[in-house]
Design a protein around this nucleic acid. Structure first.
Length: 588
DNA sequence: AGGCAATACTG
DNA sequence: CAGTAT
DNA sequence: GCCT
């Protein structure tokens, strides 16, 4: 369907009958219309009620517009500015449906200068970029339009037609020399295609990233990951490798050359033929506990499946028993988790926690906290007001895990204390028995009394679970048939086992801990690198200088000290934060 | 040419 | 310490 | 891989 996976935000609201009809149209065609602030993240197409858009694409009746606003006015606009989200007329929807394609390969600007969201410099002069030639037929897949004059990346500027059904061409817009450069927080919102601009290049970067990632070539892999992020946030169509290298961050000579090859030939040699060996490597590393080293070692021993390993080197699974669980839940743990399910898990844990220590608090971190629609796992951070004694928390943890296990919620645990071993013993023995491995002695499983993090496998009950959440969650990995006998994963539409992580922190380190566990990983690396360059050290325990702790409780102070804006969690996804302070890519 | 985040847990 | 995880 |  033409709107598959596309999120729309209708402003100021979607309450009128006409807009409800539009909403239904969108959803009937696979799209989603945002209703709550918590859904405002990621890539969104913003649709503005036509009655608030003037003929020259400015916002009108701002007072009413604001009054009618359904969500947080300032927050929404901030988000739109920060991410250069495209704003279109709602009537575009019927156009797309009539044409059978989501064609946003035009660039239009809705002038939002009426908004008093000012905080940076002066307004831009009133020039707003206009279309040069409406070419309704051209899609994102445009060819050589005109010669690229200057560096104007824009080839395709034109306004989207307003009339739902009529094909009357747009009134020829006045031609203005160059579109203004769009930067965050300026008074213009750029309309750009959202679904996948430069999708072929992004896909290539993704594959190259993956290729070197599983090979363990950490830094090269990261190079591609960052390049991918740069391209993803690139608002225009890349036309040459040289251009990309010149205008985007994280594109060097090597990637520029590859881009050029892709643009010229349509493919990159050696990309599609992901070798047989790479595929085996990837299969192994998709198992929790199996990294690139182990995978390579197994490959060298000619193993193709976990069953091969079990037969040839059974010791691998005895010493690395967590990977036995990774094998068992290989499929379930590759499935994505909906936000609503994350919330249910939180409430289950909260309930038990309150029975153990009502003063101990827990909150969702990780990708959930960053606003992702689906999460790979669930990260929970525990803390207790005015409590810096981690032994106390560790004891709460142990009792909590025990209680959750006794209620059937916890399916397995990837790390044990001596006490918990007794409770999980039979479950573990069952797994060892299933693959006919000798069950090791107790002291083989974990001797630390106090543990500050737990990696768990958990399940909601069928009653708590709504299977339609699962159906939406998409594809997941599968074991090879010969490995299936060890699988504990759920059937098609049953409640799957989920990965749940427990972390804890001292009360005094709450801010630093939240930064760490909210992530993203790339965000942590970026901000920590920045801290290091400034002579600080940032960890989950706090911000330090010269071995001395400067701040750890107040997240905001840490950001302030590092001289970065207080970036909210939703903007800590890959790629979004980079451009903020990374001077290079705001080049005109 | 050298750096690329920083830390926790396990065998 | 190396390996895997966050 | 890219950046300094």
């Amino acid at each position: 369907m033409i709107f598959d996976g596309v999120k729309f935000l209708i402003l100021p609201n979607a309450s009128t009958a006409a807009l409800q009809f539009i909403t239904k149209l969108i959803e009937d065609n696979g799209g989603h219309v945002i209703e709550r602030m918590s859904e405002v993240h990621g890539k969104i197409l913003v649709l503005v009620n036509d009655s608030y858009v003037t003929e020259d694409y400015k916002l009108r009746d701002e007072k009413y517009f604001r009054k009618e606003f359904q969500l947080d006015y300032d927050a929404v606009w901030q988000f739109i500015f920060d991410h250069d989200l495209p704003c279109l007329n709602v009537s575009s929807v019927s156009d797309w449906i009539a044409k059978g394609e989501l064609n946003v390969a035009h660039i239009a600007l809705i002038d939002t200068s009426a908004l008093e969201n000012d905080e940076t410099q002066e307004n831009f002069p009133s020039s707003s970029a206009n279309s040069e030639q409406p070419s309704p037929a051209c899609t994102a897949e445009m060819k050589d339009t005109k010669t690229s004059h200057s560096e104007s990346e824009t080839d395709i500027e034109g306004f989207v037609e307003m009339s739902p059904s009529s094909n009357s061409p747009m009134p020829a817009p006045s031609v203005i020399p160059d579109p203004p450069v769009i930067k965050a927080n300026e008074k213009y919102v750029r309309l750009t295609e959202i679904p996948r601009m430069n999708s072929q290049l992004i896909d290539a970067m993704q594959r190259l990233y993956k290729k070197y990632d599983i090979k363990g070539d950490h830094f090269r892999s990261r190079g591609y990951k960052l390049a991918k992020a740069s391209i993803e946030k690139c608002p225009f169509q890349i036309k040459s490798g040289e251009q990309a290298q010149l205008e985007l961050a994280n594109i060097g000579p090597s990637i520029a050359k590859k881009i050029q090859t892709i643009l010229a030939s349509g493919t990159l040699p050696g990309l599609d033929d992901s070798s047989e060996l790479d595929q085996r490597l990837e299969y192994f590393t998709n198992c929790h506990g199996i990294g690139t080293h182990t995978a390579k070692r197994w490959l060298a021993l000619q193993y193709t499946s976990f069953t091969d390993v079990l037969r040839g080197s059974p010791q691998e699974f005895v010493s690395g028993w967590p990977s036995l669980l990774g094998w068992s839940y290989f499929e379930d743990w590759s499935r994505k988790i909906s936000r609503t399910e994350c919330e249910k898990h939180l409430s289950v844990v909260k309930q038990c926690l309150s029975e153990i220590d009502p003063d101990c608090q827990v909150e969702l971190q990780g990708s959930y906290n960053r606003g992702s629609q689906t999460c790979g796992d669930i990260d929970l951070l525990f803390f207790k007001e005015n409590c810096d004694n981690l032994v106390v928390i560790a004891e709460i943890f142990e009792r909590l895990v025990s209680l959750l296990h006794s209620r059937g919620y916890i399916q397995c645990i990837l790390q044990l204390t001596p006490d918990l071993f007794d409770e999980f013993k039979s479950k573990l023995k069952g797994i060892f028995d299933k693959c006919e491995l000798p069950f090791p002695a107790k002291n083989h499983f974990g001797n630390d009394r106090h543990i500050h993090k737990y990696y768990l496998g958990v399940k909601l009950t069928k009653h708590q679970y709504r299977s339609e959440e699962l159906l939406r969650a998409g594809q997941y990995l599968h074991l090879k048939p010969c490995d299936n006998f060890m699988s504990s994963s759920s059937k098609k539409s049953e409640n799957p086992c989920r990965r749940l992580d427990f972390f804890c922190c001292k009360w005094s380190e709450l801010g630093a801990a939240r930064i760490q566990w909210t992530g993203s990983g790339e965000f942590n690396r970026w901000i920590r690198l920045r801290a290091a360059k400034m002579g600080y050290k940032l960890t989950q325990h706090g911000l330090f200088k010269g071995g001395q702790k400067l701040e750890s409780f107040d997240e905001g102070v840490i950001f302030d000290t590092l001289d970065v804006p207080r970036i909210p969690p939703e903007e800590r996804e890959q790629g979004l934060w980079m451009t903020k302070l990374n001077e290079k890519n705001t080049v005109a």
